[in-house]
Design a protein around this nucleic acid. Structure first.
Length: 544
RNA sequence: GCGCCUGUAGCUCAGCCCGGAUAGAGCAACGGACUUCUAAUCCGUAGGCCGCAGGUUCGAAUCCUGCCGGGCGCACCA
């Protein structure tokens, strides 16, 4: 449709010998049904540039429009071109959907661009905090969307397994281990005091028995550290899997240190004259690329900063051949965007190669009250707590349904409610109804392929059809904007259209031909509903 | 002080990127629909100085400027 409109536009410009820059042609779904199924303001945009009458231009455009999937083209209002879809094209869509099955919706929009999505990447020093869950879900769903839209997406978790925090994890575990043997230990102020450390210490004892008591402290702490790190990674991995999130790669920061990659990366930038020395430290000249101030990469004590490791890490990502990098960060890290983009440019790539999705903070509400998520030891709410309380489906849907730009008030009561107030159940219920109809249909389902979709004529049927036909476009749009909430809304809208159809039109009747046609529509609805729920990572139950 | 996000119906939010037709949805409120393939549904009613003030435009929730409110950041920390 966009293609045909663009072609018509080109013809007009050729006819008049005009050469002007115009934005890509856009179509939208009008609010008002009488305005057709799709509408474009193309003529008005052109008129502005050419200084002509928009309605006349619209007429000229429609005259040159060559499009078989619409049955009606109208010029309306100040110069809108309203398009009404051809019924036979629409009903043919049902067959396309059934033929494509779980691949329906897939396009080559992304042209196989190699994209790496890095998300979560929290310190492996404890269970995942609930504050990480929005970013986790958003990262996963955006990856799903882009995958369906034809990008070659890899999910990656960056493990901060080097530095003080990990040492502290090892020490904390070691101290708890000593406690298990009756030693009185005062846990230092900054140590990890959560109960999970005691659990890890018990595991440590199960593995080593008394052995660590007899080793010198440094060696024992190191063994404790490695053990605890492994335990934490397994824990985090399991927690994420419970959320339906599986990474393609877990990248260890430590390998960068061990293989001298950090020094090498700093040397590279030094060679390009982007590094200078001041007050015994080495600084990266990030101001040269739009940052507010230069940043230290090697501290005066000789140790690299976190940024130095990030430089090496992103250099590594780029060297692995990704065309585009996306990092999902919490709002508290937005101040780091410009320096990382500076890094990318300093490494010789376009700043836009790196894209940061900032996910705004979430406030958990219980009975209208804020749930405190204090960092004070032992009091934090973990991602597992959330999962246990409201379940994977509700958690994933709720985190997907809002624009990442918006702060989000997460109403725990609402997410738990198994009722009409809860959008998750509304959508899942549509699927359960479909399965119920299919069961009721029994044997005649075998003949579904013979169903004649052109018998679908009522408003409810056509509305549902249009929505089903729109799915690939919705995915493309969501992929372009990296916007999971668009898919969540679409799922809700689709479920709604199905419920309306269900209430108004009986599927299984004495009229066998009509029953088959409607069963076909039901089947297509099932396919799309499943596909869209799959993208969101929400289950599609057979009954509720 | 500076930077980023945000302010739209009683509540939670779409729409803003890319200006257009009467500003939408869900929930809550009110009224109605079960002898039916699941009423976890559907139908209807009501509800709006789009934070405020200017500007650009034939046209502004949308773009620009200023102001006000909320959130998050402004390390030789990770």
């Amino acid at each position: 449709m966009v293609g045909a409109l663009t072609e018509a536009r080109e013809k007009i410009l050729q006819d008049r010998g005009e050469e002007i820059e115009l934005p890509p042609v856009e179509v939208e779904v009008p609010r008002e049904k009488s305005h057709g199924d799709y509408a474009s303001n193309l003529a008005m945009v052109m008129a502005g540039k050419l200084g002509e009458n928009p309605r006349q231009l619209a007429e000229a455009l429609t005259d040159r429009l060559n499009l078989d999937l619409v049955e009606k083209v109208e010029v309306a209002g100040p110069g809108f071109i309203n398009l009404t879809l051809n019924k036979s094209w629409l009903t043919a869509a049902v067959d396309k959907i059934l033929a494509a099955g779980e691949d329906y919706g897939r396009t080559d929009y992304g042209q196989g661009e190699k994209v790496q999505l890095e998300f979560v990447s929290t310190n492996p020093t404890g269970p995942l905090h609930v504050g990480h869950s929005r970013g986790a879900v958003v990262g996963d769903v955006v990856a799903n969307i882009m995958d369906r839209a034809g990008y070659d997406v890899k999910r990656e978790y960056y493990i901060n397994d080097a530095g003080n925090q990990i040492d502290l994890l090892g020490k904390s575990t070691y101290w708890r281990y000593l406690e298990l043997f009756g030693q009185e230990i005062e846990m230092p102020e900054n140590s990890y005091k959560g109960d999970y450390i005691i659990e890890v210490a018990r595991e440590l004892r199960a593995k080593y028995g008394e052995e660590l008591l007899h080793k010198d402290e440094g060696e024992a702490m190191e063994l404790a550290r490695e053990f605890a790190l492994n335990e934490m990674l397994e824990l985090i991995q399991a927690e994420l899997e419970n959320f339906g999130i599986v990474f393609d790669n877990w990248f260890s920061e430590r390998t960068l240190h061990d293989e001298g990659k950090i020094t090498a990366a700093v040397e590279e930038l030094k060679g390009k004259d982007y590094i200078y020395e001041k007050e015994d430290a080495l600084w990266f000249k990030s101001t040269a690329f739009g940052d507010d101030k230069d940043r230290v990469v090697i501290k005066s004590d000789g140790n690299p900063t976190y940024l130095a490791a990030d430089i090496a890490y992103h250099k590594n990502k780029l060297e692995r051949g990704f065309d585009h990098l996306i990092n999902v960060w919490g709002a508290d890290h937005h101040g780091y965007i410009q320096r990382m983009k500076a890094v990318i440019e300093a490494l010789g790539y376009d700043q836009d190669t790196l894209e940061i999705i900032i996910v705004q903070i979430v406030t958990l509400l219980r009975e209208g009250e804020k749930v405190p998520m204090s960092k004070r030891s032992g009091e934090f709410v973990t991602m597992s707590d959330l999962l246990e309380e409201i379940g994977k489906d509700a958690a994933r849907y709720f985190y997907s349904m809002r624009s990442t730009d918006s702060h989000f008030d997460f109403d725990l009561e609402l997410a738990k409610k198994q009722s009409t107030e809860n959008p998750v159940y509304y959508i899942q219920y549509a699927h359960a109804r479909i399965m119920s109809i299919k069961e009721k249909a029994g044997e005649i389902q075998a003949d579904i392929a013979e169903g004649d979709a052109s018998l679908l004529k009522t408003e409810e049927e056509i509305d549902l059809l249009k929505l089903l036909a729109r799915y690939p476009e919705e995915l493309k749009m969501a992929a372009r904007r990296r916007a999971c909430h668009l898919i969540a809304s679409y799922a809700h809208e689709l479920a709604g259209a199905f419920h309306v159809f269900y209430n108004k039109r009986r599927v299984i009747t004495d009229d066998e031909e009509l029953s088959l046609a409607r069963l076909k529509l039901v089947e297509a609805s099932k396919v799309v509903l499943r596909n869209v729920l799959e993208v969101l990572g929400v289950s599609a139950p057979d009954q509720m």
